[in-house]
Design a protein around this nucleic acid. Structure first.
Length: 595
RNA sequence: CGGGACGUGGCGCAGCCUGGUAGCGCAUCUGCUUUGGGAGCAGAGGGUCGGAGGUUCAAAUCCUCUCGUCCCGACCA
């Protein structure tokens, strides 16, 4: 491999770790400028640092550095999955359409699934996920409860034709995923498999150095038994979670929260009133308009939204200062819904959007957020709501008295609201989903006939769980959470190299000799070292070292002749001069201190 | 799918409004100098301006269509 000069390192079969390398032999195309199409910090830095290149929208090439990071992430995943007794295997990524037709997903999922035909004109799909194949295999091979439990996993490519790839490697159309599937005889068994995954995932994300939360997530409409997501905070995230000091953590899609009481001033609105009072509100349709016309804060209004679900009208009500959370309504209804069209609004309520309210509406299911209940944070009090009449609203509407409604949780949790568990203060954080775990039940085993015989010889459907992790998201999230103006600051567990050895003068024989000594010594101690022996200016090497972000940098320069090198952590700027004899200890202690 | 923007040497951009045959920085190659924070000087190579059609004596520039990419929103097993 293009060896020249001394020492003869990097040769095939040499005695030192193959994970150490010389930069002159590494393909590491770094860039000075941010790519023009990058927005997220991780996107810019991973491209600039020579970790990835974009091939097409949402389709990426992993260059040697990027692949090293992925391999380190995957190694951690494998170790922890193996530790809970999961078995690695590899599934195909091209599937005949039949299995997907059997579970119905072939029809439920739209353009997000890549579909193709083989030469025989048979319908095929590219795998978006692997529940179907795993269930297919389990159905063929598992026969007895004695074969259970099983946990199988793979680290395999997934294809999803995302409508909008974004954030570099964060949201893509082809990506690697660790997915595992558990097979148990009963729900108790599933709980055990699920708990094992929690154990493994907690360790995986801790080891990869991410700041993360395990949060309750929406198990979806399909009758899942429960689910959690692993979320890592980042402004580049596409999800939000509600968090409390007490440990409560949930995706805002379903996070419960105790609304703050509405501001005091409009409480007087109720006093002395026997019932709602109509007020004229010409052309006043939005919460903001009504609020400013009547001089009542938004929290004193009721926002009424007419929805159609299963062909039936539903009026969903939240307070004027709140947002309706669609998923919550969906869960209450047990079905999907859509906003009513303007003609439907007219037909059902006799008025137009902007003047809707619960009072006097018949034939419409009335659902109000818990915070509007008489025993809610606002107490029994009057609100302003539409009068179901053009250009008019009602004041002093008390739900429960003036309209019979069902009180359910519909509003989106917001920062500052009360924690549903302890009453503490909730905060909302923007996060990246790096992993998820689902209790599936028999959603796939039923249609695919995955059954085993139990102790009594009775055929029973296998209870499944499904568990995912996105290694590239871990990589990108680590960059999101660890970077500065000079580049990436990798968590030590997944950095492409442990130590970047910068030899200031490539042509200086003394420096070469000292650098080689350092390289071998650190290598023998188990460090993965990138020895920057390139014949480029010192500034370029320093800049690249900081961009690439190895946790520890060792610089061999002027002081080499005296047997002294410089050492500094990527995360800090303290630089120390160290004699070669002390180097091992210094590197070890900096490593210890690194995140 | 709705809204917005951008496609010009490898990368980042200017030129377009007001048509006249393409330019800057970085990178690359050669030479000399330099050498601990992305070097300097001199020289060189490299682009049918995303594609197609149209207008015009003449199109990177104007018009139409199309493809690609990014951003906001919707969507996200």
């Amino acid at each position: 491999m293009g060896e020249h000069g001394w020492p003869p390192v990097g040769l095939t079969g040499h005695p030192w770790r193959r994970d150490s390398m010389r930069a002159s032999q590494l393909f590491m195309p770094t860039l000075k400028d941010d790519p023009s199409d990058a927005e997220a910090a991780s996107h810019k830095l991973l491209v600039r640092g020579g970790f990835v290149r974009q091939f097409a929208a949402g389709i990426y090439i992993f260059l040697p550095l990027g692949w090293r990071v992925m391999e380190r992430v995957n190694r951690i995943i494998r170790e922890e999955m193996d530790a809970i007794g999961a078995l690695e295997l590899s599934m195909p990524t091209i599937h005949p359409a039949e299995v997907w037709q059997q579970t119905g997903r072939y029809y439920d999922i739209g353009a997000e699934m890549f579909r193709l035909k083989d030469r025989g004109d048979r319908d095929m799909v590219l795998a978006m996920t692997h529940e179907e194949v795993f269930a297919w295999l389990a159905g063929r091979e598992l026969r007895s409860y004695r074969d259970l439990p099983q946990i199988w996993y793979q680290i395999q490519t997934k294809f999803r034709d995302e409508p909008r790839p974004k954030g570099g490697v964060l949201r893509v159309r082809e990506f690697l995923m660790k997915d595992s599937y558990s097979f148990d005889i009963d729900v108790e068994g599933l709980e055990v498999s699920y708990a094992k995954h929690i154990e493994a995932y907690d360790r995986i994300f801790t080891r990869t150095g991410l700041r993360f939360y395990r949060v309750e997530s929406d198990p979806g409409m399909m009758g899942g038994l429960g689910a959690h997501e692993y979320m890592a905070d980042s402004p580049a995230g596409e999800d939000r979670v509600a968090l409390c000091e007490c440990g409560y953590a949930a995706n805002v899609e379903l996070a419960r929260s105790i609304a703050l009481p509405p501001s005091a001033e409009e409480v007087t609105d109720l006093e002395g009133s026997e019932g709602p009072v109509e007020v004229s509100t010409p052309n006043t349709r939005t919460i903001a308009e009504v609020s400013s016309l009547l001089g009542i804060p938004a929290s004193g209004l009721i926002k009424s939204l007419l929805m159609i679900s299963d062909g039936q009208p539903v009026l969903a009500m939240v307070r004027g200062d709140q947002e309706l959370r669609e998923r919550k309504l969906e869960r209450v209804l047990g079905a999907s819904f859509r906003p009513a069209h303007p003609e439907e609004v007219k037909e059902i309520t006799g008025t137009e959007g902007g003047f809707l309210g619960p009072v006097g509406l018949s034939g419409v299911r009335l659902l109000a957020d818990l915070s509007l209940a008489p025993d809610g944070p606002g107490g029994a009090r009057g609100y302003v709501t539409g009068a179901n009449k053009l250009h008019a609203h009602l004041r002093g509407v008390v739900l429960g008295r003036d309209a019979q409604v069902e009180f359910v949780d519909l509003h989106e949790a917001t920062s500052g609201e009360g924690c549903p568990e302890c009453g503490g203060v909730l905060r909302i954080e923007q996060v990246i989903e790096v992993g998820n775990i689902f209790k599936l039940g028999t959603k796939y085993s039923d249609p695919l006939g995955v059954t085993v015989l139990d102790e009594d010889g009775v055929e029973r459907p296998v209870i499944m769980g499904s568990y995912g992790i996105g290694p590239a998201r871990i990589m990108a999230t680590a960059v999101e959470q660890g970077n500065d103006e000079r580049g990436i600051v990798w968590p030590k567990a997944i950095a492409p190299f442990d130590v970047q050895l910068v030899q200031v003068q490539a042509a200086d024989e003394t420096q070469t000799a000292v650098a080689a000594e350092v390289y071998f010594m650190l290598g023998e101690q188990g460090w993965d070292v990138l020895w920057d022996d390139r014949d480029v200016r010192a500034g370029v090497k320093f800049a690249d070292a900081e961009l690439i972000g190895a946790p520890v940098r060792v610089t061999v320069g002027k002081l080499a002749a005296h047997g002294v090198v410089e050492v500094q952590p990527r995360a800090g700027s303290e630089r120390q001069e160290v004699a070669l004899a002390e180097l091992a200890a210094t590197v070890a202690s900096l490593w210890q201190a690194a995140r």
